[in-house]
Simulated assay, not measured.
Amino acid sequence: MSKLAVGLMSGTSLDGIDAALVSIDEDKKMTLIDFETLPIDHEMKAKLKDAMDIGASSNELLCSLNFELGYLFSQAVKLVCEKSHTKLSQLDFIASHGQTIFHIPDGKFKSTMQLGEPAVIAYETGVPVVSNFRSMDMAAGGQGAPLVPYFDYVNYLSDETICLLNIGGISNVTIIPKNASIDDLVAFDTGPGNMIINGLMEAFYDLPYDKDGQIAALGQVNLELLEELLSDEYIHRSPPKSTGREKYGGFFVEDLIKKSKLPKEDLIATLTKFTALAIVCNIKAFGVSKIIANGGGVYNKTLMKYISESFDGQVEIGEYPDAKEAMAFALLGYETLHKRTSNVPSATGARKHVIQGSITYPS
């Protein structure tokens, strides 16, 4: 019997909360019924950036923000259900990734923090909530990321080697060798996605992103700066690896602006090219014949042009470029409720396959 669920995802771009209403059958086949994004307003975005900033964050802010985000995630569930004329009582469960505030994949104590209190979501909707997906993988020695490869494996295994690319704030890939077992997968964050480009657009133009890559298309790529950027140790580090706003966020953008004397358009063009090459150079060694791209970055025509020019194989846009990650967490929640493992140790570095997520029941 199929289950009806809402998957929730808010990524490092901080642009909105994605809500995917899906049905999942016993064979794990998923059908996207409806999708909606609840925008994150300027005030909330500023709070989130402060929470992620070591200098600006505080215990009070984190404590309050956790519950405030819980109400926002609840609104996203109600929004997609209203849009599709679905009653909350029809939902079997909600799977919420939450909002990552800080992620420490290396060091003595690997750790991660996602906010968006599941008890608030469960109470507001009356629906069981699966959340906290990353912690168990980290407890098993993994990096807690990436987690979408399980979804990729279930939906895209084929007789050719393909790369599932997601361009959010950070770019991440899943490499699925032809006819692979789940333990053959390789998945990792390649480096920045939209994050640096968006930061530059906000600083220079007070705009949230480079619409269609129009500004980058006006600029000239500076080869000297590009070479310097591509020498970044993270880009050349072997997987498993994961990163986030703590590396490519505000400090990175501020430092770029401070040091660079390039025209605005040239700087954005160069960082767009850097983002593309960081993706392509990270997958060349795997014999990939096709890239299937998802995430907000697919709408940046200049970024996609740079990727296509740098990659020898086929590049195409996925079936659900906006909804994929929210759908992925719905599948992970489904597996949690069935007491089945859903991490990919070859991607995260975990010592074993584990059941991920915590379950919060409504009153």
Rank of each mutant, 00 (worst) to 15 (best):
A51Q: 13
Y71H: 15
G213W: 11
S58P: 14
N282V: 00
Y156K: 12
I257E: 08
S13Q: 08
L230N: 10
K211N: 14
I101A: 06
Y209G: 03
Y248C: 11
L65W: 02
H338A: 04
E335Q: 06
P128W: 08
L230T: 04
T302A: 06
T348F: 10
F35K: 01
V6H: 03
N343R: 09
K47R: 15
I283F: 05
S308V: 04
I24W: 08
F274G: 01
I175T: 03
S238L: 08
R134F: 06
K290H: 14
P362T: 07
D50I: 01
A180N: 13
P146R: 00
V120P: 01
S23V: 10
Y320D: 02
K28M: 08
M9K: 02
S171F: 00
D106M: 01
S171E: 00
R245I: 11
S242G: 12
R237P: 02
S231C: 09
G142M: 03
D312T: 14
S74R: 04
G244E: 13
C81M: 05
S111T: 14
G287I: 11
E319N: 08
T12K: 00
E254G: 15
D322T: 02
K110T: 11
E335W: 02
S358K: 15
Q356K: 04
A217H: 14
S346L: 11
L225C: 08
L303W: 05
F274K: 01
V354T: 13
D18L: 01
P149R: 03
T336H: 12
M30F: 10
Q356W: 00
I94S: 04
P39V: 05
Y209K: 00
Y209H: 07
Y123W: 14
A326L: 04
I17S: 09
F252H: 06
Q314R: 13
T341P: 08
S96P: 11
L225Q: 08
Y123F: 12
G250L: 11
K29C: 09
T37C: 00
D50F: 00
I317Q: 14
K301M: 11
Y248D: 08
L4G: 09
V344Y: 06
D15T: 07
